[in-house]
Amino acid sequence: MNAVISMTNLRKSYGDLEVLSGIDLTVSPGEVVCLIGPSGSGKSTLLRCVNQLEQATSGTVTVLGQTIASDDHEPDIDIDDVRARVGMVFQQFNLFSHMTVLENCTIAQRKVLGRSKPDAERIAQENLERVGLGDRGDANPRQLSGGQQQRVAIARALSMDPQLMLFDEPTSALDPELVGDVLSVMRELAEQGMTMLVVTHEMAFARDVADRVLFMDGGVIVEEGPASQVISNPQEERTRQFLQRVLDPTHTPVAGKEHKDS
């Protein structure tokens, strides 16, 4: 069984700042991996190294059988070909604002995969229905709520028939009552066997859907394992502190302030 993603000793620096300090990660086909961790720990950077929106500083990254970063030699690969098979969903949706919902879902199919217009539209329509927005194809992105926009973004990615989906805090920019719609679309996707790497702060989603949860802090993976272990019974102190802050924010000791219970 070939890994969908495999990273060894991945490092990434911006100037003097090392954001990723040696990441080893393997994601198998059909696996759903959730990435949790405090702000600035490098979750987005790690995710973006998978489709080379960020270039690794050192280490090896292999995605869908293609080595896109390597220490021994500068791989001369067609990154666009890899990206076409890897869907990505952003925190800010990033729908093309000058196109309708349907055009958003067809443009890459036609220009990248070379599908005919009718084929592309049929596939786009199927995926819009899959996310519950089959009737909004003619709408303009800015006419939709955040939750609807994010579901269109998922449909846009799915229309490319990806073999791997990357999600970067897909629900963080949403009003609380819209989060559920997006999460249930993602859960369905997971149940249908999609390989997914998800950065999220939704612990309930991670607990219920993820096969594996990784806790990152300071550019390294601090703890990883099944959701039941990492979230419900964390072994590392840093993981415990982070989870307390996320799951019970009102009883979190204020950073820098003396607290009695520790």
């Binding site: 489709n51 929106l53 666009d80 070909d81 990206r83 076409a84 098979r85 890897v86 869907g87 990505m88 952003f90 800010q92 990033n94 729908l95 093309f96 604002s97 000058h98 443009i107 890459a108 220009k111 990248v112 995969l113 973004a153 846009r156 990615a157 490319m160």
Partner: peptide, 29 residues
Amino acid sequence: PAGQIEAARSLGMSPTRTMLTVTLPQAFR
């Protein structure tokens, strides 16, 4: 916005393709 370009690139569009289908049309607006 950079996010528009990242979205296009993440769908597999080349830099030229991205310029023609996403960047220039939005720049004109």
